[in-house]
Amino acid sequence: MSFRKVAVPLVAMVIFLALWELLVWANGWPNYIMASPSDLPAAYSRFWELFLVMGWQTLWRTVVGLLLAIAFGVLIGMIMGFSRTMRDALYPLLVGFNAIPKATVVPIVALLFVGAHDFNTILIAFMISFFPIAVSVSIGLSTLEPEYRDILRSLGASQSTIFWKIALPKTLPEFFGALKVAVTLAFIGTNLMEIVSPHGRGLGALFDSGKTNSDYPLMFAVLIALAFLGIVLYYVVVALEKVFAGWAERQPT
């Protein structure tokens, strides 16, 4: 990790915060129109315990939802990748399901499983994030060049050997590409549930309480905290990608 790799994004963030501060200052906006970065430290220091507790609640439920999305998405993707019939059958269903705004599903789920707040939140995070994974895995598997199968099949290899030795590793770069999209989607799902469903858990609930108490800097502080968690999780995925699919990255020559 070179100095440049760390410095460049940090400088970009500082510039972003400066521009934000400048925008608020130049317009003379009070914090109930738009809070400025200088309002945030106060909000964090006042509610730091809540940020830790609720940030953790948001984080673990997002991760569990994401793990479920990976398991289910890979399964559906495998089914669609290997069987043309299943692909033709499932694609319209999946696309239709994905087109439904999840905000409309939240009250349905909340009514369906009243009180099961953790479960509901995980469910929404899962529902919103499995689609890109399923699509990428199915495309990765179905576009495997026939020669790749043939080099093993001509030696008498079984379908499962071909899957483990060739199809699965070859799909990993697409899978990680989709996982990067899914990570941020899962956060959106978790927060949707936390904001809409009145259980007082997670950063979404903290945002909501900021709203009811007219604590505008708190609302912005929550948004920044969410962005921070999103960045952390995203780079966890990037690190995993480097380990498992680092070969797909071309060396600059």
């Binding site: 008498g156 590793p169 699919a245």
Partner: peptide, 30 residues
């Protein structure tokens, strides 16, 4: 298919995640 056959195509279809040596040794795993 039988294991006494070796094949090569116009597309070399080497596995990008393996080294050249491991690619060459792939049939021996089957």
């Amino acid at each position: 298919p039988r294991s006494t056959v070796g094949m090569a195509f116009q597309n070399p279809v080497l596995l990008e995640w393996r080294t050249i040596l491991k690619n060459v040794m792939l049939p021996l795993e089957i």
